[in-house]
């Protein structure tokens, strides 16, 4: 986890040295029922102007499928970030993905949004399957997805 924090600190442009406080986020994605192989998910943050900010987690490890996570892929390609150390297994139908990440306080309640893109091999691609504001008000409240993700819950 320490490594992850370090990477996120590096990756998150807004994090300044004086940011003394960070928040632990628990993200839970409940996958809907579908037929097909385990889904690839990209969980990432966008800035208040809608542009890409940083990546929190990638479910799925074959790079040749990453471009199917369209919106995220476009953003990370422009940013030049790497995703070393923040990838895990893809998530199958009906399964639950739980990830804990640490975010700079400055990103909370500041107009930043958390996105999930989902894609399944030989199936559908859902850029912005889920979008929700990074706000304390939305903490713990499930948000429905439009694609493979049935609901997403972020708890701060």
């Amino acid at each position: 986890m320490k490594k992850l924090v370090a990477i996120l600190m590096l990756a998150t442009a807004i994090v300044a040295p004086e940011t003394a406080f960070a928040k632990d986020l628990s993200i839970t994605a409940q996958m809907g029922p579908y037929s097909g192989r385990p889904a690839y998910l990209a969980i990432y943050v966008t800035k208040p102007d809608g542009s890409y900010d940083s990546t929190l987690w990638i479910a799925g490890q074959k790079t040749r499928f990453y471009q199917d996570l369209r919106n995220w892929f476009r953003g990370i390609a422009a940013s030049g970030e790497t995703i070393d150390g923040i990838t895990g297994a893809s998530v199958g139908s009906g399964q639950t993905l739980s990830v804990n990440v640490t975010l700079a306080d400055a990103l909370i309640d500041a107009g930043y949004q958390l996105h999930v893109d989902s894609a399944v091999e030989d199936g559908g691609y859902y850029p912005n399957d889920v979008v929700l504001p990074l706000s304390t008000a939305s903490s713990g409240k499930p948000v429905s997805g439009s694609g493979y993700v049935q609901s997403l819950t972020v708890t701060m």
Partner: peptide
């Protein structure tokens, strides 16, 4: 399998 890390999106 030859797929690079992350292909560049045009700027």
């Amino acid at each position: 399998d030859g797929s690079g890390a992350l292909a560049a999106f045009p700027t």
